[in-house]
Write a protein that binds this DNA or RNA. Structure first.
Length: 141
DNA sequence: CAGATGACTCCCA
DNA sequence: CTGGGAGCCATCT
């Protein structure tokens, strides 16, 4: 598994990162994309989740939510299922359906895991398109 | 090979 | 707060 990741396809690398999210925590699509590294954007992560097949068991897709702290709408079955799964893991939602990142936000995988699997987390590329490029750094330590 | 398509995200009005 | 528009890029027609 470990060595395969080095040459793995983008989606597989995405799934590998998502698998690192512990129960009771959540991560955003953009955060996962940043960890996977260059060539991966939040959109790819979302698409990867959409393309997730039953055969890829063990990918806690429910722990990946959008940057607003809400569960993203989807074409398939409603977000109630995802929310229920998260609540079962101890994630709480406020009245408007938002989670508190300060409380359940994922810190990211240990640096050692990143090195072993050769992930090179990039700064959040969010601001690359327009104005400033101060590229706020993801706190992985 | 040329579009079309997203479980996204940011910025601005 | 809400909504629209542009950028994004691996995959799929």
């Amino acid at each position: 598994m470990t060595d395969d990741l080095i040459n793995a396809k983008l989606y597989d690398r995405i799934y590998a990162v998502v698998r690192q999210i512990p129960a009771g925590a959540v991560a955003t699509y953009g955060q996962v994309a940043a960890i996977v590294g260059p060539g991966c954007t939040a959109r790819q992560v979302g698409y990867a989740m959409s393309a997730l097949k039953p055969s890829e068991d063990g990918v806690p897709w429910q722990r990946v939510i959008n940057a607003k702290g809400e569960i993203s709408p989807r074409e398939g079955y409603g977000p109630e299922v995802q929310r229920a799964m998260l609540e079962h893991e101890g994630v709480t939602f406020d009245e408007s359906g938002h989670v508190d990142f300060a409380q359940v936000g994922w810190e990211g995988p240990p640096w050692q895991w990143l090195e072993e699997n050769q992930f090179y987390p990039a700064p959040l590329l969010s601001n690359r398109k327009k104005k400033n490029s101060d590229g706020e750094q993801l706190s992985l330590f």
